[in-house]
Design a protein around this nucleic acid. Structure first.
Lengths: 136, 136
DNA sequence: CGAGATTGCGTTACTTTATAACGTGTGCAA
DNA sequence: TTGCACACGTTATAAAGTAACGCAATCTCG
């Protein structure tokens, strides 16, 4: 595997609509918020959103924020290595900054290795106040 | 503040009951599972559990696992520095190993600092298969 | 002491988040 | 052309979490 690059063309109609909603937003959206935004496009039920989200997450185009029960479009510079991503979630403006860091990723891998833990997925979420909200 | 050390004596009845349920369990419990276990002790409503959990988390005696919507008693060797804790969550046996790591904690702090992000809380959760489940 | 604040508790009702189960349509491959 | 895989639509339901109300016990400080 590792066909992480999906053009919009690869997406089904529902997936594209959900992806669009997330891309348009500058902060994470809950599945139900997405649903509301897509009523006019024919969305009626949560499952339509969740099914699209499942795929988009699988493709690596969307991340789930566990501590928020919400979703963001991947804005990671290079959208190909999604193993370990760090999210900084501002509790004031609720915007999210996404970044990847090799040092952190390596340390996580090391710790897992040391414990003989077969690592499948890593969640790192930082809560706090972002730069611009501190200024204000 | 920083009275992180709470003896059972410091806890109210409900807090002690919830703490007991979590301590008895060798894997994370959802609030509703705790509720069910405490029916015989007079628990009737989710709020009774959530209120106790809020306090226990505040005291640092319990951790919330964001990716599981569940809670574990803190088994961290020294229960006094809860800033950055790493959880390894086994997807087979659902047991959780908790550990703290200075290298990781420092890196997180560094990244936050670099982004001028005022860090309040850090979540690190690793999903995978634990040592004993791989053996089996 | 005692008026006011604080904290925990119990209950009902409710919101938000997520899934189960079942059936339809479409495209592709044996 | 049959059968499989996959996306889709719908209804119903489960799981997780909160709002709002009122009561009782405990501080606390004038």
């Amino acid at each position: 595997m590792n066909e992480h690059v999906h053009a919009s063309a690869d997406l089904t109609k529902n997936q594209a609509l959900v992806m669009g909603a997330l891309t348009r937003s500058d902060s994470p959206l809950s599945a139900y918020t997405i649903l509301d935004q897509l009523r006019d496009d024919g969305f009626r039920a949560p499952l339509q959103v969740y099914r699209a989200l499942d795929k988009l997450v699988e493709f690596g185009m969307v991340h789930r924020l566990e501590s928020l029960n919400a979703f963001v479009a991947c804005r990671h510079p290079r959208c190909d290595d999604h193993e370990t991503v760090v999210f900084m979630i501002c509790e004031t403006c609720s915007r999210v900054q996404e970044l990847s860091d090799d040092v952190l990723a390596n340390r996580v891998a090391f710790l897992a290795d040391e414990a003989r833990f077969a690592l499948k997925n890593t969640t790192v979420e930082l809560r706090g106040i972002c730069r611009s909200c501190q200024a204000a």
